[in-house]
């Protein structure tokens, strides 16, 4: 319960800061290079309730946000930020989920191999690979994939969204960073578990190696990896901004980038709050899951 309360408080703080930061921007949202007619500006201000005192605007906005209503877009006429979230979020969501699945299903086995073959060639190769993956910015990975798979080999479509083939490259580009993160995490956690007494006990009573790893070690080693799901999710959100732009995927990330270019403040505000809330809620869920799976951990301790 306390955790829930803190999460709501954090979302509230983020919404407040975002609102005041966007109000602090010099120049109104309707300033153009060629000044508009004063009456037009006045009417626009009236339409978006910008003629009210700032504090009143703030209260209104917070009440709306509490009702999950992020208001109208300044840039696209007759459309609200919620319309865009409804339309674009499913695309980003599918993309993110697949990237997570790829990262988890490759990262965990890679980490296990790396831990079991510590300092052998398998481990060294994986170590070099993960360092390289961490050092490549995702736009380099994305455009590299695009060039070689899309233009040179012509086996995958280079952009847009809709067919499974079009999803392959963005998913890979997004999965690269979390993948190396999970591999490192899984390795260190596996090494720690393998040093435990109960593993030695199991080994000395003659448990076969495969069963030892899968039944005894893996169950305990995989638990800490669950905690990185939160940061991983953040990485995927950040990555999706760039990756969706490159592959022109009609997702929320691209919408956000466009909003930056268009200086569409309500959109930027709304999407920032939406993304942060999403992240905070998912961290909360991960924490609760963690406590459910591992009874040794009590939520009250950390909170």
């Amino acid at each position: 319960m306390r955790r829930l309360f803190i999460s709501i408080a954090v979302i509230f703080i983020i919404a407040t800061t975002t609102f005041w930061m966007c109000r602090a921007v010099p120049g109104g949202p309707f300033d153009r290079e060629k000044p508009l007619n004063p009456t037009i500006i006045e009417n626009l201000n009236k339409k978006y309730h910008l003629d009210k005192p700032v504090f009143e605007q703030y209260i209104d906005y917070m009440v709306d946000v509490a009702k999950f209503d992020f208001g109208p877009s300044y840039f696209y006429k007759n459309e609200t930020v919620n319309d865009y979230i409804d339309r674009c979020f499913p695309v980003s969501f599918i993309l993110g989920i697949f990237a997570m699945i790829v990262a988890i299903s490759l990262g965990i086995p890679a980490g296990i191999i790396s831990a079991l073959k510590q300092n052998k060639w398998q481990d060294n190769i994986l170590k070099v690979l993960t360092t390289i993956l961490v050092s490549l910015p995702n736009f380099v990975i994305a455009s590299g994939l695009m060039y070689f798979l899309g233009y040179k080999l012509r086996i995958l479509p280079v952009a847009m969204w809709g067919t499974p083939q079009q999803a392959v490259m963005p998913v890979l580009a997004l999965a690269a960073y979390p993948l190396s993160y999970i591999t490192k995490m899984m390795k260190s956690s596996m090494l720690e578990v393998l040093n435990n007494d109960y593993i030695r006990t199991a080994r000395s009573k003659g448990v076969p190696r495969g069963k030892l790893i899968y039944k005894h070690a893996l169950k305990n080693a995989i638990l800490p990896v669950i905690t990185v799901l939160g940061p991983m999710f953040a990485g995927i959100i950040t990555g999706s901004l760039v990756v969706e732009k490159i592959f022109t995927i009609p997702g929320l990330g691209q919408q956000f980038t466009a909003a930056i270019t268009n200086r569409d403040y309500t959109m930027i505000m709304g999407l920032t709050i939406f993304y942060s809330s999403l992240l905070i809620v998912s961290i909360l869920i991960v924490d609760i899951l963690y406590a459910v799976i591992d009874p040794r951990i009590k939520l009250s301790e950390g909170a």
Partner: peptide, 18 residues
């Protein structure tokens, strides 16, 4: 803890816009 629970990219973008 609170600040680090938000992806830095988001508020970096926000700050840059401002």
């Amino acid at each position: 803890d609170i600040i680090s629970s938000i992806p830095s990219m988001l508020y970096v973008i926000l700050l840059m816009v401002v």
